[in-house]
């Protein structure tokens, strides 16, 4: 049974990226992640929240604490109703970007987290779910 303690942050302005970062820092510090893992999780949250703002204009980040009984982790979901992604393989390629960005957001965030899932439909929106488990 996975227990779910959760919350949401609406992303509709540049300043909401900072709110998302602060929220996730607080939650992951409370969960007892190491400083390096907190930095990884917060940085991934920053990248994915910014993707919502840049590509969709607005959306929602939700966080959820995972507890399987012997493993504790955090799950972050980034959901928007923006233009969607036509070619998921392409956006996972290093350096691919349709904006002025570096094209690191998605592939980079996947490296920082333990798990990443993307669901997207053109014209309907995108959902990115990432997970990180606490070590030791």
């Amino acid at each position: 049974m996975i227990e779910c303690n959760h919350g949401t942050v609406v992303i509709s302005d540049e300043s909401d990226i900072i709110v998302a970062r602060k929220t996730i820092r607080e939650v992951s510090e409370k969960l007892g992640f190491s400083l390096t893992d907190v930095t990884r999780i917060v940085t991934a949250a920053s990248e994915l929240a910014r993707n919502i703002f840049v590509y969709a204009g607005s959306g929602v980040m939700s966080w959820c604490i995972l507890d399987t009984g012997n493993l504790v982790g955090i799950e972050l979901t980034f959901e928007d109703h923006g233009p969607g992604i036509a070619d998921l393989k392409q956006v996972m390629q290093e350096g691919y970007s349709t904006s002025k960005g570096l094209g690191l957001g998605l592939p980079g965030s996947r490296r920082l987290m333990d798990d990443m899932e993307i669901r997207s439909r053109v014209g309907e929106g995108t959902t990115v779910v990432v997970k990180k488990w606490r070590r030791g």
């Binding site: 390096t36 930095t39 990884r40 940085t43 290093e94 570096l102 592939p107 980079g108 490296r111």
Partner: peptide, 9 residues
């Protein structure tokens, strides 16, 4: 530094 390197900055 660890995070920036893994992100690819």
């Amino acid at each position: 530094a660890i995070t920036a390197t893994q992100l690819g900055l």
